[in-house]
Write a protein that binds this DNA or RNA. Structure first.
Lengths: 135, 135
DNA sequence: CTTGCCCCTGACGTCAACGTCAGGTTTTAA
DNA sequence: TTAAAACCTGACGTTGACGTCAGGGGCAAG
């Protein structure tokens, strides 16, 4: 399939697909005249790329990890890299969950202003100068 | 306290604090000579702002929501806004969890390439799956 | 007084993931 | 055959949350 159809199928722009290729995330065969031609599986790959982007990975990181995902082989370094990204995502999930709970508390307190609910931002930070770290 | 100390305490840059003020997220008293002066509570507020940023909220959204957090009152619109952000964060958490599970599967499969683990990116796509014969 | 550190206000620079436009070629529909 | 649609390669524009630099002021210590 050509780039327009892939864009339509995967829900990203043509420009984005060309950008992915530029970043080494997506390969394409070229026709005689230079037009890109993709196999069916490209749609899944684009979905995967989008998923990883939305998880906060950069193009460079994705480019480093995709080959080992493709081949399903990993060096110790790539395994460490994968595990590190997994842990980063875990931490991000935890932080988001705390934020969501805080938002819920705010919603509850603003719904009924008379209550003595805990204030948002007052989690349990006994010491000072602590970054957003593991609870 | 002055801006340098607040920056050191909250772990963000002086530039960021001035930016927050510019965006209407953080108020400061001014000394005679124009220097910013913050109360102790400002550190907590900066933490909150950082938390909301890291949850993917924009300056504008934060600026719209902070007053109702402060006053703990909400109009129907702001409640809806808060709930919408909460739901967005929930969805983001779910997507991240799926990505993390995918990453775990990749890690497992690359750790032991001989196993027949599911491939990443194949979540629930019941459409046709024409695999080239990968043993 | 002057040295050094902190502070001020602009204002331009950065970076990533694209959007968009220009100018030209290829493919497809009429 | 021809016109529209799709594609190509540059290359510049956009956005958000700052970084960084320039140029100048304020204040306690030596």
């Amino acid at each position: 399939m050509r780039i327009g159809e892939l864009a339509a199928r995967s829900g990203v722009s043509v420009r984005a697909l060309r950008y992915y290729e530029e970043q080494g995330l997506l390969q394409a065969d070229r026709s005689e005249s230079g037009q890109r031609h993709y196999p069916e599986a490209a749609a899944d790959r684009v979905q995967l790329i989008q998923t990883l982007y939305s998880a906060g990975l950069s193009s460079r990181t994705i480019a480093e990890l995709l080959p080992c995902v493709d081949a399903r082989v990993s060096t110790p370094e790539s395994r460490a890299r994968l595990a590190a990204e997994r842990d980063r995502i875990d931490a991000q999930i935890a932080a988001l969950a705390r934020t969501r709970d805080n938002l819920d508390a705010v919603i509850a307190s603003t719904r009924n202003p008379a209550c003595g609910c805990a204030r948002i931002g007052e989690q349990d930070v006994p010491a000072q100068a602590s970054h957003s770290a593991t609870p």
